[in-house]
Amino acid sequence: MKPVKFSIFLFTMLAGLVFQLYPWSDTGVIIRPDFLLVIMIYWVLQAPYHCNIGWVWFAGLLVDLSTGSLLGQHALTFAITAFLGLIYQRRLVLFNRWQLYLYVIFLFGVQRGLILLLKLFAGSELPDWTYALPVASDLILWQCMIIWFGELTRPKKL
């Protein structure tokens, strides 16, 4: 498996940002996946030599700026999620598909949970169940990433 080009990584990040900035309508906002999160987590697991925690943190900062929320909120949760992915990266690439899905759902859930926690601390109200919906659309986007950029690189069978 050839190493991924840095330009591809940068391009997907930019594309994710554009989708993040797209003016979503009412239902769109509810089911919209966290584009940048999914893309960055994919690259953290697929190409840790390009995408480290710093990049993911920076992507989180971009999300903060685009949503106009408190600067650093998404950055913090993105960094923690990336860390949780990175420490198991070597094991994750050996997982089979379903195990990987489960772990990825866990990662996306953790990110949403952390954001919820931060918002609750800041005095927001508890959102309704639709708050968890984007995890499903995240998974669909994750599958798209796998289709476009390949399964996670695993060591060749001997």
Partner: peptide
């Protein structure tokens, strides 16, 4: 657009 943050 109508805000990208479901909380505000």
């Amino acid at each position: 657009h109508m805000g990208r943050d479901p909380f505000s």
